[in-house]
Design a protein around this nucleic acid. Sequence first.
DNA 1: TTGTAGGCGTTATCAG
DNA 2: CTGATAACGCCTACAA
Lengths: 335, 335
Amino acid sequence: MNIYDISKKAGVSIATVSRVLNGNSYVSEKTRKKVLAVIEECGYTPNAFARGLGLNSMKTVGILCADSSDPFIAKAIYYLEQELRQNGYDALLCCTGFDYLEKEKYMNLLLSKRTDAVILVGSNFVEDKDNKNQYIRDAARSVPIIIVNGALNGENIYGTLCDDYHAVYEATKALQASGHERILYLYNSHSYSGSNKLSGYLAAMEFDQHSNLNKEDYVQYFYGSIQEIKDHLTSLKQKGISFDAVITSDDSLAIGALKYAKENGLTVPEQLSIIGYNNSILSQCCEPELTSIDNKLEAVCSNSIRALMDVFRGQQVPLRTVFSAEIIKRGTTRF
Amino acid sequence: MNIYDISKKAGVSIATVSRVLNGNSYVSEKTRKKVLAVIEECGYTPNAFARGLGLNSMKTVGILCADSSDPFIAKAIYYLEQELRQNGYDALLCCTGFDYLEKEKYMNLLLSKRTDAVILVGSNFVEDKDNKNQYIRDAARSVPIIIVNGALNGENIYGTLCDDYHAVYEATKALQASGHERILYLYNSHSYSGSNKLSGYLAAMEFDQHSNLNKEDYVQYFYGSIQEIKDHLTSLKQKGISFDAVITSDDSLAIGALKYAKENGLTVPEQLSIIGYNNSILSQCCEPELTSIDNKLEAVCSNSIRALMDVFRGQQVPLRTVFSAEIIKRGTTRF
DNA sequence: TTGTAGGCGTTATCAG
DNA sequence: CTGATAACGCCTACAA
């Protein structure tokens, strides 16, 4: 059942059927009704491939992420999909894992599928070493690239993100103001936002200035399961590194810290304060509930799609949009 | 840059280029190399739309779910996407929400995009009232329908799921064996698996037989946030409904029960046992960690895709595959 | 307001 | 082994 069949049954040309379908050109009310009746009767749906071939677009946007089951990423994907669909676009999902070469491979795969744009979710797509970002710039020459929660300089690359630096800076300062000195920073990603967060922490701690603390001790990179995070902190304690607060780059790390406190008989927040990041559902599952930094994911996603649609319309769009984060105070801190 | 350009540069016909591209028919090693060289040199990628039009497939599978940010669903989507991609298929994601009419609408949208199959994630796609499932059967006439964690009778509809009935039955029995009598069942979905779980509970409880318990009191449907779940349980307690254990149809409900215990000064598992469902990350975030029923999501997803690929190959595929669940014992029970 | 015809870029079927 | 050529189904000038 194609447009020819419909045109025959309705006694008009395929051009007229096409016009009715797309509602652009003028068609007399009478023929429009007849055509619609036939379409309805036959249950006809235009062939999306043929349309795609002609228009060189299937109104589809690729979403690239490392791991769509991570609660934060999952939430982002949900928001993005909703917004895209509201604008008549489909979402093609692609999980790359964390390997840089895989990311590049999947980016090319999406491009070969001729998506109208590619959205990178998570700042871990922007690598520290800039030559590893070249494939993104290359891709940007064929379609607009949207980065959710990150940014990268380059033409046709649009980033929306939170001011992570400032958020962590403020959080650290708030801990200090409430009497903490030995604040540990725990993170699991060398990404764009990862290094911003770290910088915020370092700026607030001023290790160089005075501090009797050893920077290397208090800046802890660790990637692993909740269990392993707990064990890692325990091993730090055993090494003699003492801390009265932990700031993390992700809620799951903070959960690990909470488990560490439980296991070592430390009361939270009295003996150990903990701050998570992302304000994900995890922050409400534990006891006490996590104080967490909310990086305004919904606003970021919504802005990302709005920007993309503006790009499609050929409007002027800022290459970078920054929201400010908010500290959501719950039970693991006492400020 | 299309196949004609390549054929010209290589001094062959487009048919030959196509053959090289698809590696099916025989091409002399010499011309193959020449063509490949030109393709490489030009960075040529075949147009997916044109190919889709010709083959009537873009090797894309639609994934329909209510809410992709739910941890359980998110995990499922992750597994599905991985498996699909390994088989050379893309995943088109579509979040419908819980309204039945929306589900139908999005199903049709996917069909109009000519996906090669549609995967329904979550048994909440199978409605109690069977006439509401008609749209799924209709869809199954054009593409194979795969149901993850659910099942529906009908041609070309393939379901993979866990034996939820048995899992809950066993869990309830285990609670009884460890001295519990007043076991509350808390659920939030009138879905296919939802009613199976409930049946398992009811069978184990045998309210009709003897029981001095009022079935209406102990079967609690409640949909809401963790906070609201907690409050709901508190209100039950205030109404005089007493319980020494809670089995839930979802980990988030179990988290709510745990919060209820904390708020009301009940020790877990001594004074209140709790069993969750799905064995999601949430079950490891709380303290004590949740005993939860693992419904073998990875196996279910993996089997679903294997089945789908078999369907594509025209092989005989069972309409329904049932795995058995496993109780993962953690800190909220004492058996 | 409507119809005709060419083009979109492949794949596949035939001849050679 | 290779080359013409006809689909595939739609959109869109251009003509009428």
